[in-house]
C-alpha cells in the first residue's frame, strides 16, 4: 500500500482506538475536567506501544508525530465527550476517527509545505 495513504488509515484507526479505550474507561466519570486530563493521559500511554509496533512498517517519524498529537488530543476530547451523559460510545469513536484523520491531513499538508520550501 502507498505509505502516504497508509498514514491516513493509521491516523483514523489510532483516533478511533484511543476514543474507544477512553470511552470504556471514563464513560462513568461525571467530572468533565478530570475526564479530559485522564483521557489525555490514557491516550498518550496507549499510542506509545502503537508507535513502536508501527514504526518498522511505515517509518519512525511518520508514525511518531501524528500519533503523539492524536494520543493526547483525541484522548482529551474523547474524555470530555465520554463525561457528557447521553452521548453514545459510537459518537465518541466516530469523533476519534474523524479527529485522527484530520490530524493526518493537517500533517500531510504541513509536510508538503515544508518539503517544497
Amino acid at each position: 500500500m502507498n505509505l502516504k495513504i497508509a498514514d491516513f488509515f493509521i491516523g483514523t484507526f489510532a483516533g478511533g482506538l484511543v476514543a474507544l479505550v477512553v470511552y470504556l474507561v471514563l464513560s462513568t466519570q461525571p467530572n468533565m475536567l478530570i475526564a479530559m486530563v485522564l483521557g489525555g493521559l490514557i491516550g498518550m500511554v496507549l499510542v506509545l506501544p502503537l508507535k513502536i509496533l508501527l514504526m518498522p512498517f511505515v517509518g519512525a517519524f511518520e508514525v511518531m508525530i501524528p500519533l503523539g498529537i492524536i494520543g493526547m488530543g483525541v484522548g482529551m476530547t474523547a474524555g470530555m465527550l465520554s463525561a457528557i451523559s447521553g452521548i453514545s460510545g459510537y459518537v465518541v469513536i466516530a469523533w476519534g476517527n474523524l479527529a485522527g484523520c484530520m490530524v493526518a491531513t493537517i500533517i500531510y499538508f504541513a509536510n508538503k509545505r515544508l518539503v517544497n520550501q
Partner: peptide, 11 residues
C-alpha cells in the same frame, strides 16, 4: 534492518 525498514521505504 527490521526496525529501519519503514524509514528506508520512505527515504
Amino acid at each position: 534492518d527490521f526496525f529501519r525498514a519503514g524509514d528506508m521505504r520512505r527515504w
